[in-house]
Design a protein around this nucleic acid. Sequence first.
DNA 1: TTTTTTGCAAAACCTTTGCAGTTGG
DNA 2: CCAACTGCAAAGGTTTTGCAAAAAA
Lengths: 167, 167
Amino acid sequence: MTRSVNTPPLQFRDIDEVADALRDAGGRFSATRRLVLEALFAADAPISADRIAAATGEGGARLDATTVYRILERLEELGVVRHVHLGHGPGLYGLTRDGGREYLVCDGCDSVTALDPAQLDPVRALVREQFGFEASFTHFPLVGRCAACAGDHAPGPAASAGHGHAH
Amino acid sequence: MTRSVNTPPLQFRDIDEVADALRDAGGRFSATRRLVLEALFAADAPISADRIAAATGEGGARLDATTVYRILERLEELGVVRHVHLGHGPGLYGLTRDGGREYLVCDGCDSVTALDPAQLDPVRALVREQFGFEASFTHFPLVGRCAACAGDHAPGPAASAGHGHAH
DNA sequence: TTTTTTGCAAAACCTTTGCAGTTGG
DNA sequence: CCAACTGCAAAGGTTTTGCAAAAAA
């Protein structure tokens, strides 16, 4: 128990707060960055860099993917954004102010369940007790089989044919 | 509830057993496949397709990556092999007979801890109770901060600079 | 004006696909 | 002999890098 820090405020409630943070860090706040932030603030779930680029294209020239990745990188450094890998596809980016949601992903039907971090606190506590390990399901989800799929066939090996999902 | 299969024995203790399984499934057992299996049986931790290819190259012509991927795919179908994603790098392949190990990966120092599945049973039980979800840490690890890194800096956002690891 | 940002082109990286030639049974 | 397997070349999808032009402060 060396520390007591517990996720600093870092709210970033709106785009202007992010703009300030960007400038405070010696950066600039361009129209381009505003577009990316608008896409992020508009999204209700984490989205890919490509989808962000597409969103920016709706009202004008679509931003280049490179630019989007670079902006997201900067925003992650500032703690505004975080990305999660929910499967084999592209990383998905979301605002940290959205509570740092954690995820359950079903191996069988690929369904994604977003949880409030508090819901996983008992699990986290157990893992901490047993392994001295502070678990987080924000970057990689908790993977397994949802109730529906668990009854389908066992989670063991040889889980392939006839299920239409490949990992 | 269409099926009731419950993880058949499927030991695959040695290469010959796999050879039989391959032939039983209408496939063939080539020298190439033997090389891949030798690399897998020799490894003491999951390894990438590329490292398998490299291993086969030691005593002759290095196998093509394509071939290795195709063989691994076949072996996964048979339940001989399984792959895990421990980070942003390539998938890592290992024998299922190695107990279907599950993993803890530290976000701070990138250390990997292999666990016996039984060690995670209490965690699994808790997750099952709370969410009706059958968790598995064989495909994606349990990610977080190890004891050493947890005292380092909080798991919140803004976790970057000075740590030499990027995710 | 100075420094940061941007877009384009290109490449890196991991993995898959198509196809013609080879090989196991 | 024939189906299964292999290697090569190419492509697919995601992300990064280099560089010159454009824009913020």
